[in-house]
Computed example of a mutant assay.
Amino acid sequence: MTASPVLRAEGVSREFGRGETVTKVLHDCHLEVYAGQTVAIVGKSGSGKSTFANCLSGLDRPTGGRITLLGQDLAELDEPRMARMRAEHIGFVLQKDNLVPTLTLEENVAAPLIMSGVKLSAALERARAALAEVGLTHRARSWPGQVSGGEAQRAAVARACVSEPAIVFADEPTGALDEENGLRVQELLRAMVKERGAATVIITHDLDLAAGADVVATMTAGTLRAAGRVF
């Protein structure tokens, strides 16, 4: 690809603790993700894949290396600017839907837009349109506690995509669902992201979920590998 990557990680490492108690979780990880591309990072529990995703999305800071998103070095952003970057350019779909129980589904989906400065009325209108895309028009004013797990996760997909993000991180997005609902959420996520031309990073131990990705990378003991080689 000749275009610049949406996301680039160069030599990323992450350590926890100090002195003799240091635990090295990530070791010199490299990754590039381009617009419209889906990258799946697979690995066993404890392999470091979620830690890597947290670093890539600015939820955590690496101990070493460099991460750039849309050409911006994340190390140069203080927390308020990083929070704005996440609100405007990053979508998240987690294993648990993480919907705010005191907000309706449409209010939950509108939240990223409101955080980035969109007026309430416009944010709610866009939220209802996103919910319609995932088949939840009839649930727009329901509370999270009133919907099924599959419906809640579909709302989470709508929330991740409503702000037209440059990249979506999906960490075990179907892990808490049965097979039927998992497949539906998987299909909706791919369709919505593809329509918007966003990049996608999927964190999973499910090889079936990873099979639809353009690139599959394997995290083993903190080292990222793809196609049998170290990045």
Rank of each mutant, 00 (worst) to 15 (best):
H27I: 00
V185K: 11
K44W: 00
L99R: 13
P112S: 01
V201H: 07
T223L: 04
L70G: 13
H89S: 15
A130P: 04
A198Q: 09
A160K: 10
A198S: 15
T137Y: 03
G117W: 10
A83K: 08
A155S: 09
I67P: 01
L183S: 13
L94K: 04
M1W: 03
L105P: 10
Q72L: 01
S4A: 15
D73T: 00
A199E: 07
V6W: 07
T223S: 12
D60A: 11
F231M: 09
G48D: 08
G11H: 12
T104G: 10
A217M: 15
L120K: 15
F52E: 05
F92L: 01
L94R: 12
R84L: 12
I67M: 01
G58A: 03
L188R: 14
P62D: 12
N54G: 07
M219F: 12
K96N: 06
G65F: 11
T102Q: 10
D171Q: 05
G71F: 01
P173W: 05
L207N: 07
F16E: 07
D214C: 06
E180R: 15
K49S: 09
M219P: 11
A40Q: 05
A83Y: 08
I167L: 11
D214P: 07
D60E: 14
E187K: 15
F52P: 11
T220P: 00
A53N: 08
R84Q: 13
T21I: 00
L31E: 02
G43L: 05
E15L: 09
A213W: 07
G11R: 13
T21K: 14
M82V: 04
D73W: 12
E107G: 04
A226H: 11
A191P: 04
A227L: 03
T204P: 08
D60V: 01
V185R: 09
L7M: 09
R86P: 06
L99A: 03
F92D: 02
G46P: 08
V157K: 10
K44E: 14
A213Q: 10
R8Q: 14
V185Q: 08
Q186M: 12
T220W: 04
A87S: 14
A40R: 02
D208Q: 12
C161L: 15
G43H: 13
V25S: 09
S4D: 05
E10H: 11
T23Y: 00
L188S: 10
M115R: 13
R229G: 06
